[in-house]
Each structure stands twice: as structure tokens, then as C-alpha cells.
């Protein structure tokens, strides 16, 4: 059950000021997004229409603390088909970014971000990998791109990962 004290009217205002978020209030809950979503098709826990509704209602805690916010497969089917032009993919992204700022980062995304920060890439490349590449006639790959770590420092993303 939802009661008035669960509702935070500032939540939607925050979303409306962020890139892509300005389209949120166009949503009339038709459900085209959910019908198009490959995740919703197999797991009802993830439901973009419901998420848009929850944001408009102001259920900030429930959305940002949820497991489902991380379940978007980033396929864009919802956004492409929305008759109202709601940037659902962009809103899902900014909700995840907000969740991270509130300290609710999913461990899998945390790990990914740490790898990219430390190596400049998602997979570690060692001498064995480069030897294998050499045998195949492929050029070696640089193990670490330091500038990416500097970008994390600059944007404050390193602090977010603490």
C-alpha cells in the first residue's frame, strides 16, 4: 500500500531537470514500453510503465533502493515505441545514476566501473593475452590507459565508488 508519507514530490522535479528527464510528465501510462520490453516479458519485477508511474508519484526510496532499477537491458525498445516521446531509456539511466549518488550502486556495476577506472577497459589484458594475439597475427593491446582513471578523479566518479 502507498500512503501520502511515502510520496516525495521533489523526486519528479529532480528528474525533470536532468537530461532526458524533462519528458517524464508526457507519460499517460499506455504500457507500450512494458509490452515492448524483453525483460518484462520474462520477469514481471521489471516494468517500465510502473517505474514511470512510481517516479511521477514520488516513490523515491522505493525506486532508488530497488533491485529492478538495474534490470534495464538498455535495448531502447521502450523509448523507440513510446507514442509520447518519453525518453524512457534516458530516464532509466538517470535513475540508476541517482541511485548511485544515494549509495545504492549494484555490485556488478561497481565492479565494472572500477575495472574501467583502473585499466581503462573492462577486461584485464596480460602478457598471455598479447602473446595469443601475436600468434594470431593481431597487434598487441595496451594494458592500462591511465587517462581514464584521471577522468574518474576529475568527475568525482571515484568518490561515488567508495
Amino acid at each position: 500500500m502507498i500512503t501520502a508519507k511515502d510520496l516525495n514530490p521533489n523526486f519528479k522535479r529532480e528528474v525533470l531537470t536532468l537530461p532526458g528527464g524533462e519528458t517524464l510528465l508526457r507519460c499517460y501510462s499506455c504500457g507500450d514500453c512494458t509490452a515492448s520490453c524483453p525483460v518484462s516479458a520474462i520477469d514481471r519485477k521489471f516494468n517500465p510503465r510502473r517505474i514511470m508511474r512510481m517516479v511521477i508519484l514520488g516513490l523515491k526510496e522505493r525506486v532508488l533502493k530497488s533491485d529492478f532499477v538495474w534490470l534495464c537491458s538498455t535495448c531502447y525498445a521502450c523509448q523507440e515505441r513510446c507514442p509520447q516521446g518519453v525518453k524512457i531509456f534516458e530516464i532509466m539511466t538517470l535513475l540508476k545514476n541517482m541511485a548511485v549518488k544515494e549509495g545504492y550502486i549494484h555490485p556488478s556495476f561497481k565492479k565494472q566501473a572500477e575495472l574501467v577506472r583502473d585499466l581503462g577497459r573492462l577486461y584485464e589484458i596480460d602478457d598471455f593475452d598479447n602473446k595469443k594475439r601475436e600468434r594470431l597475427g593481431l597487434p598487441p593491446v595496451k594494458k592500462v590507459i591511465e587517462e581514464v582513471g584521471e577522468i574518474f578523479e576529475r568527475t568525482g566518479a571515484t568518490k561515488l565508488l567508495k
Partner: peptide, 14 residues
């Protein structure tokens, strides 16, 4: 480096 996509969910600006 990485294109940036794997970091988008964590921090889109980064």
C-alpha cells in the same frame, strides 16, 4: 580505451 558505455549506468557524465 573502453568506449564509456559500461560506466553509463553508474555515472553518465564520466
Amino acid at each position: 580505451s573502453c568506449c564509456g558505455f559500461p560506466v553509463k549506468s553508474t555515472d553518465a557524465f564520466t
